[in-house]
Each structure stands twice: as C-alpha cells, then as structure tokens.
C-alpha cells in the first residue's frame, strides 16, 4: 500500500513527468480542446468574478447592473463588512483550531506511524488495520454520542476540545499516509543508528522525523483543509459568539446582513481570500496531499 501511495504521489511531480507525446496534430481538435477547457474555466471563474464585482458595487448599482463590473469601486463595503462583523475574530478562532488540530495530529500520529513502519511484533498487522479502519467512518456516525460526551464533560465552547475531536478523525488517514512514507525509508538507517549507540528515541527524533518532513507537511495540509472549513461539529459544539470559527461565524453574518448584499459579498470575499492564498502558496503540496489521501490500496 505504501508503495502505491509513493508512486501516485511522485506521479504529479511535474519535474520528472514524461511528456505524453499524444497525437493532437489536427488544428481542429486543438481548437475544440481549448474550447472545452475554457468553457469549464469560465464556469469555475464566473461566479467568483461576479462575487468580486458585487462586493465592490453600491447597492443601487448591484440592482441595476447585475452582470457588469462596478461603475464605482466601493471599497468601503469591505470596511463596513469588516467593522460590522467579527470576521477577524472568527478567523483567529479558526487559526487557533486549525493550528491545534495540526499539532495534536502530528504529535499523536508520527510516533505511531514510526512504530508501525519500523518495528516487527505480533499483532502489528491487526493494530495497523484498526488504525486505518477509521478512514471510512463518516464523522456523522459518531456525532450524537460525541455531542453528549462533550456535554457531560461540560466542555462546549472549548476550542481545544473541538480541535482534539478534529485531530482524532484525522488519525487514521494520517497514519496511513505517514506509514507509507516511513516504510519507504531504507532499512539500513536503524542499523547505522544502533551501531552508533542510538536509542529508539534519538533514532526517531534525529533521523526518522527529519527524513519524513514531506509526509508530515502532507498530513498537516490535509488537516488544514479539513478543519478550516468544518461546519457541522463546530456548529454543535460552539455557541458563544466570541468563539465561533469562520464557517459558523459566516453563517451568522449571512443571516444578519441578509438585505445588504454588497457588504455581504464583501464579507464572503474576505472569508474566501485566505483559502485562495493558502491554495496558491501550497498548490503542489495540497494536490499531492489529496492524491496521497485518496489512494487506498
């Protein structure tokens, strides 16, 4: 399984990619290909451009001129939306939750993946199976007991508990990905380390972890995508306005600004900009992560 992951991951590595010498000789075919690509590109881009335009129009301009670019660029919409909402607060909360989720996921998963990939012992296969069995479990199937459990602990409105739950559901897939990474490291590593009198602890921290950096980045990025946009669990566990994460904060904002479309559009724009920036900065890593996470033996 690990090998397959590796193979698929390196498949997107565009530097070593073989150029597919396919016969697209006919001009007519070429034109058609570009038409199809562009039509779909427009379908993706138009709603976003339209949102951007709407966010910069005056209310009257929006009603009269649904399609076109703004007649006057109303940057004040952004200022109003920023001031009128707690979008900065929501983002901060989302940053906290996402950061904690990453930390908990990496700290719990890396040592497990290390033991499962580098040691031989009875019951290892079973343990690995149990660990990754959770990959197929939708969080919905656990949400009612989780909700009641957190209530029993009296821990609603606790960003840490929310992150812990997010991290718990990241564990199976993260073990799956990291175990694949670590299995592919050469066996000789340990032998050298032990000849030098290295303990398991040192081997892990000084050799394995640095060599698995890519894998750790991958599971972190997947954790970001999963927790930054999560709606259902956060909605159930957080009710205090000051603690809302971006998705639920945005829900409230939409209800509140229901009639002021331009400010609403500005608020939504502000909410999606971090995601787009993150994607553009980490594009290749995100795509690789998605592929690594999707491939299941």
């Amino acid at each position: 399984m690990g090998n397959q992951t590796k193979k698929a991951v390196s498949g997107t590595d565009e530097l070593v990619m073989p150029s597919p010498q396919l016969a697209v000789e006919k001009k007519k075919t070429l034109v058609w290909i570009y038409i199809v690509l562009t039509v779909f590109a427009l379908i993706v881009a138009l709603p976003l451009i339209w949102l951007l335009f709407s966010s910069l129009k005056s209310q009257a301009d929006l009603t009269m001129n649904t399609w076109g670019p703004p007649k006057q660029w109303m940057f004040s919409n952004y200022l109003k939306a920023w001031k009128g909402s707690k979008i900065d607060k929501y983002m901060l909360n989302s940053v906290i939750v996402t950061g904690l989720t990453i930390v908990i996921t990496v700290v719990t998963v890396t040592p497990i993946a290390f033991v499962l990939s580098r040691f031989n012992f009875k019951g290892k296969k079973l343990l690995y199976f149990i660990a990754i069995a959770g990959m197929m479990i939708p969080i919905h199937s656990a949400i009612i007991p989780l909700y009641m459990m957190v209530g029993k602990w009296n821990q609603y409105n606790n960003l840490g508990v929310l992150s812990l739950i997010y991290a718990a559901f990241r564990i199976p897939i993260s073990i799956f990905i990291l175990e694949g990474f670590m299995t592919s490291l050469p066996r000789e590593l340990e032998e050298c380390a032990f000849i030098d009198g290295c303990s398991v602890f040192r081997l892990f921290f000084k050799i394995i972890v640095p060599l698995t950096k890519d894998g750790i980045v991958t599971i972190s990025i997947l954790a970001v995508l999963a927790s930054w946009n999560e709606l259902l669990v956060s909605m159930l566990l957080l009710s205090k306005p000051a603690l809302k994460t971006l998705p639920i904060g945005l829900m409230g904002f939409i209800t509140e600004y229901n009639s002021e479309y331009t400010q609403l559009a500005a608020g939504i724009m502000m909410a999606i900009i971090p995601s787009i920036v993150f994607y553009i900065l980490a594009q290749e890593k995100i795509e690789k992560g998605m592929i690594a996470g999707a491939i299941k033996g």
Partner: peptide, 19 residues
C-alpha cells in the same frame, strides 16, 4: 514503544471508535 503508541490510540479509541 508503548509511549509512542498509547497517546494516539487512546485519542482515536475514545473519540472515534467508542462513539
């Protein structure tokens, strides 16, 4: 090894499998 395995499995068992 136990120190490496236990925390993660505890979180996973308690918050995913048990529910």
């Amino acid at each position: 090894i136990l120190l490496f395995l236990v925390p993660g499995f505890l979180v996973y068992a308690y918050l995913v499998l048990y529910p």
